[in-house]
């Protein structure tokens, strides 16, 4: 698995701390925040590959609102929703807003990792396509092969 950058957003600090520790132990680059606003702020300054986003957070922004903001700031980031209650309505709403998938709490780390891997793979492909498209664009504009930097 390529090394990728993960952001975990959950109001449950006990969970947040533990999951970060476990991911780091597996040599993954994971960061955590406890609310939607903090996540949005962070994403404005840093690029991430996958965001794990709790759907239900008290006060301020809830998961779906945060998702909408995140997708606006970084359209290419893949979001996996975490929910304690798999209400079809919320999940469908999440998918419409561009989430990659959702996971039911409690979930095993293995489930989480494979889901993130799928999300990352999708993002990588997407990234690659976009890069190719951009390169093609540039080639056509300049009528020559792109010059390396």
């Amino acid at each position: 698995m390529d090394k990728f950058k993960i952001l975990v957003v959950d109001d449950e600090t006990d969970f947040l701390e533990t999951i970060l520790a476990r991911l780091k132990k597996r040599k993954l680059d994971a960061t955590g925040v406890t609310n939607g606003e903090a996540a949005v702020d962070l994403l404005k300054n840093q690029l991430f590959d996958v965001v794990l986003l709790d759907v239900k957070m008290p006060g301020g922004m809830d998961g779906i609102e945060a998702l909408r903001e995140i997708k606006r700031i970084q359209p290419l980031v893949e979001v996996v929703l975490l929910t304690g209650h798999a209400s079809i309505e919320t999940s469908i709403e999440g998918m419409k807003q561009g989430a990659f998938d959702y996971l039911l709490k409690p979930m095993k780390l293995e489930e989480l990792m494979s889901k993130m891997a799928e999300a990352f793979e999708k993002k990588s492909k997407h990234d690659k396509k976009i890069r190719e498209a951009v390169i093609k664009d540039l080639t056509q504009q300049h009528g020559s092969t792109p010059s390396g930097e």
Partner: peptide, 14 residues
């Protein structure tokens, strides 16, 4: 469900 699953989730991760 939500109130139970979140603590369960913490327990599982711990």
């Amino acid at each position: 469900a939500h109130e139970i699953n979140n603590p369960l989730n913490v327990i599982l991760q711990k």
